[in-house]
């Protein structure tokens, strides 16, 4: 294998895991953008999505596409439900209470999953097999599908946020909650919508994750969630394009570290990035810095 084709394969790997990170990071960033909450339960929503795929395909023998749809729907509803039950009552509480609650919800989901699904990992049957050989580069269909689905989701999200009424309301609320209310925008509806959209993206991410790694386990969401969080911070938390860029950068960085033979250092390098970003440029690559004119 030539160096070039090795670089290309690693790039594809990086883009594949990067697009999953990006989808998950979007949920972190959107929620932070609107209520300044680091929703640490976000990663665990992915885990629930993965189990939905597993049970839909094995216990109910549903076709993969139906399983995927069910997972996305389940994640969307779960995200909106968590927001209603756990975060809405704390709307006027200090931010720290919200953060602690988010960590609590995360523990609840992880331990609840262990109780219900068992602590061991479940093998999810793969449903995107094969690949294509181009020169001496082997492209698996999973990688191709993952990258395409992620990019398509981001295009749809961008349209939603930029052009639709609810999307514009989201931007208005995230910029100035009080002024948005004075426009007649309902905070509760807009915030629920944001959680639902972020969780739907997590649902898509969970399916793509399962395609890549073929396993569901109760704690799978925590590492994925943490890395996506790093991606969101790197891109500039609160920024939607930032989350996309951050996700891809983290994915590519992991691939690079693996390619030079330091795969055991992968996680460490990602968290080192977090430390460096927080030290050097806490607002991230595209963090919001709007100077206000008086």
């Amino acid at each position: 294998m030539s160096l070039i084709s090795q670089i290309i394969s690693q790039l594809v790997n990086g883009l594949q895991s990067g697009s999953i990170y990006a989808l998950v990071a979007l949920g972190y960033s959107m929620v932070y953008g609107i209520i300044l909450l680091l929703n640490f339960a976000h990663g665990d929503i992915i885990m629930i999505g993965a189990y939905v795929v597993f049970y839909a395909m094995t216990s109910f023998s549903l076709p993969p596409l139906v399983a995927v749809l069910l997972a996305v729907i389940a994640c969307t509803l779960l995200g909106a439900l968590i927001e209603k039950v756990a975060y809405t009552p704390l709307r006027s509480a200090p931010r720290l209470s919200l953060l602690i609650t988010a960590i609590g919800v995360s523990f609840l989901l992880e331990n609840g999953a262990q109780l219900v699904f068992g602590a061991g990992a479940k093998n999810v049957p793969s449903f995107i097999d094969g690949g294509v050989q181009i020169g001496d580069v082997y492209l698996s269909y999973v990688s191709v599908v993952t990258i395409l689905v992620s990019v398509a989701s981001m295009v749809v999200l961008t349209f939603l946020v930029q052009k639709t009424k609810l999307g514009k309301a989201m931007r208005a609320v995230s910029e100035d909650m009080g002024a948005a209310q004075l426009m007649g925008i309902s905070l509760n509806r807009t915030i629920s919508f944001t959680f639902a959209v972020g969780s739907a993206l997590a649902g898509i991410g969970s399916v793509l994750y399962i395609c890549a790694y073929g396993q569901a386990s109760p704690t799978m969401g925590s590492m994925l969630g943490l890395k996506a969080f790093v991606a969101a911070v790197l891109g500039g938390i609160g920024s939607i394009p930032g989350a996309m860029i951050g996700g891809f950068v983290i994915g590519l960085l992991e691939a690079l570290v693996t390619a030079v033979g330091l795969s055991t250092w992968k996680d460490g390098v990602v968290f080192a990035v977090l430390i460096v970003v927080l030290l050097v440029k806490p607002t991230g690559i595209l963090g919001r810095q709007i100077t206000e004119k008086v």
Partner: peptide, 24 residues
């Protein structure tokens, strides 16, 4: 209510700000 300090949505265009005004 036109709030103190205007509080227009700085990261949105003039047209989008006006659309927000017509939200209801």
């Amino acid at each position: 209510h036109v709030p103190e300090g205007r509080r227009v949505f700085l990261a949105m265009s003039v047209e989008e700000n006006l659309e927000m005004g017509a939200y209801t």
